[in-house]
């Protein structure tokens, strides 16, 4: 039962990651792509690792996965923010949507 719930969570993570991979080809604008890359990929990471933790139950393995999860949730949006900040400060400006 517990392992089935874990597999379901991992499949949900795969769906999020699929939409993230679709979004970086769908949008024709750098700033829209960076939104997809930062948000949806972080949500996919979260869901997939929670699925692995549920699948393994309470053990030392799950504790290590939890440490990686808490690090990744801080670092992944931080890096995306830094890339977009570098692009904006270098003068790469696009027209705003109305």
């Amino acid at each position: 039962m517990r392992e089935t719930i874990g597999i379901v969570f991992m499949a949900a993570g795969i769906v999020f990651l699929f939409f993230g991979a679709l979004g970086i080809y769908r949008y024709k604008n750098f700033y829209a792509r960076s939104l997809v890359a930062s948000k949806i990929d972080t949500v996919g990471f979260l869901t997939l690792l929670v699925g692995v933790m549920i699948h393994k139950g309470i053990s030392m393995f799950s504790l290590k996965v939890l440490a990686i999860l808490s690090l990744g949730m801080v670092i992944n949006p931080l890096v995306s923010h830094y890339i977009v900040r570098s692009a904006y400060k270098s003068g790469y400006h696009v027209k705003k949507d109305r």
Binding site: L17, G20, A21, I24, F30, R33, S34, A37, D41, F45, L48, L49, V52, H55, K56, M60, F61, K64, V65, I68, G72, N76, V79, S80, I83, V84, S86, A87, Y92
Partner: peptide, 30 residues
């Protein structure tokens, strides 16, 4: 542009981390 490549590299790195975690869960090697 340069920043698109960095964005793709960021995605690739996070997907590699997920792959290694799943590999560890399959093999049972913590």
């Amino acid at each position: 542009s340069m920043w698109d490549r960095l964005l793709g590299f960021n995605l690739l790195a996070s997907k590699l981390m997920m792959m290694i975690i799943l590999l560890a869960a399959i093999r049972g090697e913590s």
